[in-house]
Write a protein that binds this DNA or RNA. Structure first.
Lengths: 182, 182
DNA sequence: GGACATGTAAAGCGATCGTTTTACATGGCA
DNA sequence: TGCCATGTAAAACGATCGCTTTACATGTCC
């Protein structure tokens, strides 16, 4: 595989399990077996690697969301994708938000990147809501988004089963909004 | 005020805005004007200060939840307290989860502490649900909890107005669960 | 076969980290 | 007055940080 891609994947795994600021470049490069020289050739700095990891992570998740979208239950399938994602990657909380909070005052690029990614994800949720409801409903879209973020955060200190509860809540709210009752 | 309390409050402010692992002890002590010697007298280590900050933060929030509980709308008032809390402290995401993710592999005490605190909070939410519904409903309690955690996380990259949307969602779900319809 | 791109290995850079230590100021109490 | 607890100021400790550099091993293309 491409060296750069392997570095990103390895570093992502380390960030996921060990956090962002408490780990040095050596531990970031250990999984891929790369040298620090190659790191700075490819990414310019440690922060550059962080940005690359966040971009790759967001793109991979959005791609998977698109690939696993269900026409019958476009809202509920959001949470199916989340469950499968956490089963393979582990429930460590949203990596983007974790990075944002740790670089809030240290790297404006990371903060701006994550905020843009969250806007993009929120719009994807809104499109699902529009498909499922037959019309746009920004209030419901926000509610589903909150359930999604809540499930992601809660799964890190609880059970992955909370995702099913979030799915039920989202469907119930959608049913109410569609006038079909609970 | 007590020196120890001032150190905790000052360090909490720095953790909130600058993250946990990317800040040195000097910047943690700057707001209170204390010396490193006093830090190690009181807390033993930097991690000891982190634990003290997390305990104080959780206790303060739980106390405020109890003080601001509304008998008429026990579920909805959860989100009123959250909104007021974020208006005074700023929306930086849940400090407990932020610490947990950054110390996940470095400090087992912090991980265990946060998980216990989250269990305690979750039970407080369940009690609110029981009061509002007239009976226990663990499913609804989890859903309200997820909305709460989601609003806390989302407010850090969005608008504090999402809290009102979470409140609406929680009340709608409670209405459905109580059989009173949407 | 020589030039070049791409990689690892490893030493070393100054800066900063958490922590300890020495020195000194202050205030309440016996 | 003398003592001790409690605090700040500041230097210094070794370790580790992000990053640079030197040296060397590959493979590929002309």
């Amino acid at each position: 595989m491409d060296t750069r891609t392997e570095m990103i994947k390895g570093a992502a795994r380390t960030f996921e399990t060990e956090g962002f600021r408490g780990v040095g470049v050596d531990r970031l490069l250990a999984p891929s077996g790369s040298s620090t020289r190659t790191l700075y050739k490819h990414f310019g700095s440690r922060d550059g690697l962080v940005v690359a990891v966040l971009e790759a992570r967001h793109r991979a998740f959005m791609d998977r969301l698109g690939a696993e979208a269900d026409e019958i239950d476009p809202i509920g399938s959001l949470f199916d994708t989340l469950r499968r994602w956490l089963e393979t990657h582990g429930a460590w909380g949203c990596m983007l938000l974790r990075a944002r909070s740790e670089y809030a005052s240290a790297n404006a690029e990371i903060v701006a990147l994550v905020e843009q990614q969250k806007r993009e994800f929120r719009e994807a949720v809104a499109r699902r809501v529009e498909i499922g409801l037959g019309r746009a409903d920004t209030g419901l879209a926000t509610q589903v988004w909150l359930l999604f973020e809540g499930a992601t955060a809660a799964a890190s200190v609880s059970d992955v089963a909370v995702i099913e509860e979030a799915k039920r809540a989202a469907r119930a709210l959608a049913a109410v909004a569609s006038g079909r009752g609970p």
